[in-house]
Write a protein that binds this DNA or RNA. Structure first.
Length: 561
RNA sequence: UGGGGCGUCGCCAAGCGGUAAGGCACCGGGUUUUGAUCCCGGCAUUCGUAGGUUCGAAUCCUGCCGCCCCAGCCA
């Protein structure tokens, strides 16, 4: 990892706990784990957890396991386990040999369940789901004990065995922990730990008819792997007593410590896998890797770098208060990274023709541009300059305000790395008012952009040769939702808050020739516009190169649309 | 009207009884052949609120207010 952080940021509360446990000798090494359920693609929220768990391992000379929490075959799939591994690797983390599956523990988990039954701590219940809900009680009233709660150990053992054998239909029997129906914590009211599920599991096939529940599986998986610190999100705080109960009751040799932290929320997007799935399946976006999605694969396709995502996770920190981080923070990280890494190129997104009246008709002159203005080592490239050019439609105004630094009647501007040009005239469609072409004259003495007399011009604009430029398609991506929190108003479906302008496809854009040399996924800065990458998935479409806008450049010039 | 959490600048976030770090955003100024980058400078007498303890509190105690999570045979 190319991350040289010498910063002395204070430790977050989790790293403090780990530091203390290491110093006190409670543990000689920290072992964490990232435990995704393979039922969807990873998103930036998972990146926070990945950076935390793998980050801790890296900083404390510990180990971080990758463990798939695959206990619900009805929702899980191998395609997800594959994409998850790809994304974790891409983010720059390595689990080495430490890749595990909760499903690998099914036999042991079954044996533990038998132990629980034998010690009188679990029973087979035949209440229907509806009855179970009634017996559970409410937030303010205690629950009632199941009539099946006091079956004999023998009977429970036999029934559980038959559940395993597939003798009963789904929903007819469950194995429940015998805890306390009067507990104010609903999770402790005799929670279900095994249910019958006649589904094909992506790893164990049809071996099992019963599958363990999360609360029962997670703590035991952590214990089996010798996890020291089990880091999860805030909504699991109420589950911690159950996590501890299972391990205490089974008198396991080790007892990992569960610590919860706040999950990530960002403005102008949604984070839940359920909602992301809904957008994918409803075709509101073009799949899990749509560049507007905050999935890892979407960010990758958008042009975000692993380092920018890691830095983002580092700057937001770890805490316990619900928060919603401004999208600007993420954008700031990718700008910081790409400002250093991306070479500069010119591309005219919305072209209007400029004709240099005093430039020879067929002449093609080469001018040179720096690949990176702050880094001479990045070298230079050649740019063809011709009589007919394209500039940005935005860069010309018939009646510009005084602070406008671009082209207009009577004005002279610099064509970046080219020549100084002076406005001569322009022609427009009298019907529509559309500017058709702009005539200028150039100063032959100003090649490269500076005049011998040292005169200053107010602005520098980018351009592309009309004859040598190459047509490209550019996807202008913007925030996916129109509002900061699409889930704030419970009466409005979040899908109604989608930003209809989140993707604008520009088909008339024209780029400097050097742009065709890029590799798919490679990032560049289109000067004065932003950072773009050649689409890694579909670099060419209709025989034209396709670019994705990662993020705009910061713009202190208020655009008067 | 049960339980579990959380409340420090517009957004995050340090702070762990000794007198409010940092980042983003924002506002000034400088450099600049990207209105970018970069560089300087500004930006909470105040820590949800009301009391109490203390020489001294954002940090300890009490009450109140606000927000989030929990009644899946999901994770």
């Amino acid at each position: 990892m190319e991350n040289t952080d010498t910063d002395k940021r204070p430790l977050d509360f989790i790293r403090q706990i780990i530091t203390d446990d290491l110093n006190s000798g409670k543990h000689k090494q920290s072992i964490t784990r990232f435990p995704p359920e393979p039922n969807g693609f990873l998103h930036i929220g998972h990146a926070k957890s990945i950076c935390l768990n793998f980050g801790v391992a890296g900083e404390f000379n510990g180990i971080c396991h990758l463990r798939f929490d695959d206990t619900n075959p009805s929702k899980e799939d191998v395609t997800y386990v594959e994409s998850i591994q790809k994304d974790v690797k891409w983010l720059g983390f390595d689990w080495g040999e430490q890749i595990f599956f909760a499903s690998d523990y099914f036999d042991k988990l079954y044996d533990f369940a038998v132990q629980l039954i034998e010690s009188g701590h679990a029973f087979v219940c035949q209440l229907t789901p509806e009855q179970m809900r009634e017996y559970r009680g409410t937030l303010t009233e205690p629950g009632k004990e199941s009539p099946y709660r006091n079956r004999s150990v023998q009977e429970n053992l036999a029934l559980f065995q038959r559940m395993k054998n597939g003798d009963f239909p789904e929903g007819s029997h469950v194995l429940r922990a015998k805890i306390d129906m009067g507990s104010p914590n609903l999770n402790m009211r005799d929670p279900v730990i095994y249910r019958i599920l006649k589904a094909h599991h992506h790893r164990t096939g049809d071996k099992w008819q019963i599958y363990p529940m999360y609360d029962y599986t997670h703590c035991l998986s952590d214990m089996l792997e010798g996890i020291t610190h089990s880091l999860c999100t805030l909504e699991f705080q109420d589950h911690r007593p159950l996590y501890d109960w299972v391990l205490d009751t089974l008198k396991t040799p080790c007892h990992p410590k569960q610590i919860e932290f706040a999950r990530l929320n960002l403005t102008y997007t949604v984070m839940s896998k359920r909602k992301l799935l809904q957008m994918v399946e409803g075709n509101y976006v073009d799949g899990w890797d749509d560049p507007r999605m905050l999935t890892i694969s979407g960010l990758r396709r958008r042009g975000y770098t692993p380092a920018s995502i890691r830095n983002f996770c580092k700057t937001i920190g770890i805490g316990k208060s619900d928060s919603r981080i401004s999208m600007g923070v993420l954008e700031n990280e990718i700008r910081n990274d790409l400002n250093v890494k991306a070479e500069r190129r010119m591309c005219v997104l919305d072209p209007v023709k400029v004709i240099i009246d005093n430039f020879p008709d067929d002449r093609i002159e080469e001018v040179t541009g720096k690949n990176h203005p702050q880094d001479p080592d990045r070298g230079e490239r050649s740019l063809p300059f011709t009589k007919e050019l394209f500039i940005e439609r935005d860069d010309f105004m018939e009646d510009p305000p005084k602070k406008y630094h671009r082209l207009g009647p009577g004005r002279e501007v610099r064509l970046r790395y080219g020549y100084l040009i002076q406005y001569a005239s322009h022609v427009k469609d009298e019907q529509t008012g559309e500017i058709l072409e702009i005539h200028c004259t150039y100063d032959p003495e100003s090649k490269g952009g500076t005049a011998p007399d040292g005169r200053k011009v107010k602005g520098t604009i980018h351009w592309v040769s009309a004859v040598k430029g190459v047509p490209v398609t550019v996807n202008m991506y913007d925030r996916l939702f129109k509002v900061e929190d699409p889930e704030e108003d419970k009466d409005i479906d979040f899908l109604e808050q989608l930003n209809p302008q989140s993707r604008i496809v520009l088909t008339q854009a024209i780029a400097e020739p050097a742009l065709v040399l890029l590799q798919p996924g490679e990032s560049v800065q289109f000067e004065r516009q932003g950072y773009f990458c050649l689409d890694p998935v579909q670099p060419k479409k209709d025989n034209k190169f396709v670019f994705n806008r990662t993020v705009t450049l910061r713009d202190s010039w208020e655009k008067t649309s």
